[in-house]
């Protein structure tokens, strides 16, 4: 075990400074140190995508990154999207289309979808499915998730026009 190190980072716009062991996973740091338990851990080997967060605007597996690697970074998690009183449009679309069942993969799905929607036109459902292929859901069969993302993409396209 090497010595604890001090890190500074922002999560959902709030600045944090903590001293952590170098081996502490970013997922465990978010969940246990900061108490942001919305980021879930499903496999700890980068396949299921439940722990997906945005680091510097890019989707990242929080189980494949150490907290010390996030030093100086700006992180977004599911807690930063919207509130129970005011869901953001993506969260609202997930609810409207019944795109979640047990809810465990949902934070990762939402963060991946946020990243996709910001960066890509997502002109076809195949593109949406391809973009989601790094996030496993065992409940929904994906159909309603694709529909929810499609609805947000359509709504955004309407706004641009």
């Amino acid at each position: 075990m090497s010595k604890p190190r001090s890190i500074k980072l922002t999560v959902n716009g709030t600045a944090y400074e903590h001293t952590v062991e170098p081996r502490l996973l970013l997922a465990d740091f978010l969940r246990n140190t900061l108490g942001l338990t919305g980021t879930h851990v499903g496999c700890e080997h980068g396949v299921c995508g439940a722990c997906t967060v945005l680091v510097g605007g890019d989707s990242v597996r929080a189980c494949l990154m150490f907290a010390v690697q996030a030093d100086g970074c700006s992180i977004e998690t599911v807690e930063g999207l919207g509130s129970i009183a005011q869901l953001n449009p993506l969260q609202e679309a997930f609810r409207e289309h019944h795109a979640l069942q047990c809810g465990f993969c949902t934070p990762g799905m939402l963060m991946t979808a946020t990243d996709m929607i910001r960066k890509y036109p997502l002109a076809t459902d195949d593109e949406i499915r391809e973009g989601l292929s790094g996030n496993l859901c065992r409940c929904t069969g994906y159909e309603h998730i694709v529909q929810a993302i499609r609805a947000v993409v359509a709504r955004n396209a309407g706004k641009v026009r």
Binding site: T37, G82, I84, Q91, T106
Partner: peptide, 21 residues
Amino acid sequence: IKRTEDPRLLTGLGGYVDDKQ
């Protein structure tokens, strides 16, 4: 009817066993 469970699960406020502090 839209689900009662959804708001907490969509905002990261669900309470799974491992979330319990």
